[in-house]
């Protein structure tokens, strides 16, 4: 464990908690893409099945349980409890165009052709594009609540910190995982446009307006 990975995990945890609290406190999921949240729940489910098979550390297990729990709680709030506030008309990204190619790629490019490894690879590839429905929805509505932009900022920051973590681990441990690194680079690049807007327009505006 290094400081970059730890702050990355904490940034990820912050994002997940921010979103869950935003929906719970405002009792509304307006502006939130339920599709992205379903994809994230799928990412955590397919990646953390090793919870059942191996124990790495208390930290590792605790964080995985929290991630999975919050992901499903968020999906539940969006599609069940506060369904009336779900903006389905703007959450129209065709997620099958993400899941099918990612599923195929996981079978073609992986470290080991075992079920757990294929699922892990699938979760890595899926995570890199899981935010697209959310970014697409914001581009359609042309705006995002400030709290949603903070959610996206921490979510994007976490994988950027993981990239530094992988540079650190390659340099000090000779460890690198090309699949995770390439997917992580793609994932972080997808946020660049948002990061620019977040930094340049974050201040002084109540709503982040993305030029459609």
């Amino acid at each position: 464990m290094n400081i970059f990975r730890l702050t990355g995990d904490l940034s990820h945890l912050a994002a997940i908690i921010i979103l869950l609290l935003k929906i719970w406190k405002t009792r509304s999921c307006a502006g939130i893409s339920g599709k992205s949240q379903i994809l994230f729940a799928l990412v955590f489910t397919s990646r953390y099945l090793d919870l059942l098979t191996s124990f790495i550390s208390l930290y590792n297990t605790t964080m995985k349980v929290i991630y999975i729990g919050c992901a499903y709680a968020t999906v539940y709030l969006i599609y069940a409890k506060f369904k009336a506030t779900y903006d389905g008309n703007h959450d129209t990204f065709r997620v099958e165009f993400l899941v099918v190619p990612v599923g195929g790629l996981a079978f073609l490019v992986n470290h080991d052709f075992s079920p757990l490894e294929i699922l892990w690879t699938f979760s890595i590839y899926l995570e890199s594009v899981a935010i697209l429905p959310q970014l697409f929805m914001i581009s359609k509505t042309g705006e995002a609540e400030t709290i949603t932009t903070h959610y996206l900022f921490f979510l994007g920051l976490y994988r950027a910190l993981y990239l530094i973590n992988w540079i650190w681990r390659f340099y000090f441990e000779g460890f690198f995982d090309m699949i995770a690194i390439v997917a992580g680079v793609v994932q972080t690049i997808l946020y660049c446009d948002f990061f620019y807007l977040y930094v340049t327009k974050g201040e002084g505006r109540s709503q982040l307006s993305i030029p459609t």
Binding site: S54, I56, D112, F175, F176, D177, M178
Partner: peptide
């Protein structure tokens, strides 16, 4: 070996 350890990451 790369993938013996990558499962320690979240």
């Amino acid at each position: 070996e790369t993938d013996s350890k990558h499962k320690d990451e979240l």
